[in-house]
Simulated assay, not measured.
Amino acid sequence: MEWSQIIEAYQLQPEEIEQVTERVFKIKANSQQYALKKSRLYPDDLGRWQAIQQYIQQKQILGFVPIYYAKNNQPFVRDQDQIYYLMPWVEQDYTDQPIDEYASVIHAIGRLHAATMDYHQIAPLKQNKEGMEQQFQQELSSYRDQMLKYVRYFEAKRFMSPYELQICMYYRDIEQIFNQLERWQEIYLDVMEETNEMKYTLCHGNIRPSHYVITQANTYFLNWEDALMTSPTYDLANYYQYLFQFHDCDMGKVTDSFSIYCRYIDLSDYEKSLLVLQLLSPANWFHEVFTSVQSSRNKNNVNCSIKIEQEYRKLLFGLQLQDFIYKTLKSEQFEETY
Rank of each mutant, 00 (worst) to 15 (best):
I27G: 00
T219C: 05
S268M: 15
D250N: 11
Q74D: 05
Q146K: 13
D248G: 00
D226M: 14
T95R: 04
E193I: 15
V191R: 06
S273T: 10
Y220R: 15
D173L: 06
R297S: 07
Y69C: 05
Y212G: 08
F258T: 07
E164V: 03
Y312L: 06
E311A: 04
L236D: 00
I6N: 02
E2K: 15
I27F: 12
K129W: 09
T21H: 05
S296D: 13
E271D: 12
D235E: 05
I106K: 05
E15T: 11
P14R: 01
E288G: 01
N179M: 06
K71D: 00
T116L: 00
S273K: 06
W224Q: 14
I27D: 01
S31Y: 09
S141V: 07
E15D: 14
D235L: 13
M229H: 04
T337H: 04
Q97P: 09
N223H: 13
L315C: 02
Q137E: 12
L46R: 03
I174Q: 03
A227Q: 03
N284Y: 11
W49A: 06
Y84V: 11
T116V: 08
Q92R: 08
V20N: 07
Y312R: 12
F258D: 10
L202F: 06
Q310R: 10
A70W: 02
Q241Y: 06
E194R: 10
K253I: 05
D226R: 11
L148M: 07
Y102D: 15
D226A: 11
L222P: 01
W184K: 05
Q333H: 12
R208F: 12
R152G: 02
T337D: 02
Y338D: 12
Y338A: 13
Y264C: 07
N223A: 07
Y170V: 08
L279Q: 12
E91R: 14
D44V: 12
P162G: 03
Q138G: 00
Y212W: 15
Q180P: 01
S273C: 04
R183P: 01
S296L: 14
E271I: 13
N30Y: 10
L315V: 06
T95C: 02
Y153R: 15
V24R: 04
T328Q: 10
K59M: 13
V90S: 03
I167R: 06
L329Q: 10
E332N: 06
H247V: 11
F76R: 08
T233A: 07
V77H: 09
V293Q: 08
N223L: 08
H287T: 13
S259L: 03
F246G: 08
I265N: 04
T116P: 02
P88W: 07
L36A: 02
R144L: 05
K272R: 15
L148P: 00
S268T: 14
M160L: 04
Q127E: 12
R48E: 07
A156Q: 02
Q53D: 10
G131H: 02
E225G: 00
Q33P: 05
M132Y: 04
R183S: 00
K299C: 11
L125M: 14
H211T: 11
V151Q: 01
S295Q: 14
A114T: 03
R111T: 07
Y170Q: 03
I99H: 11
F334P: 04
I308V: 13
S161K: 14
E175P: 00
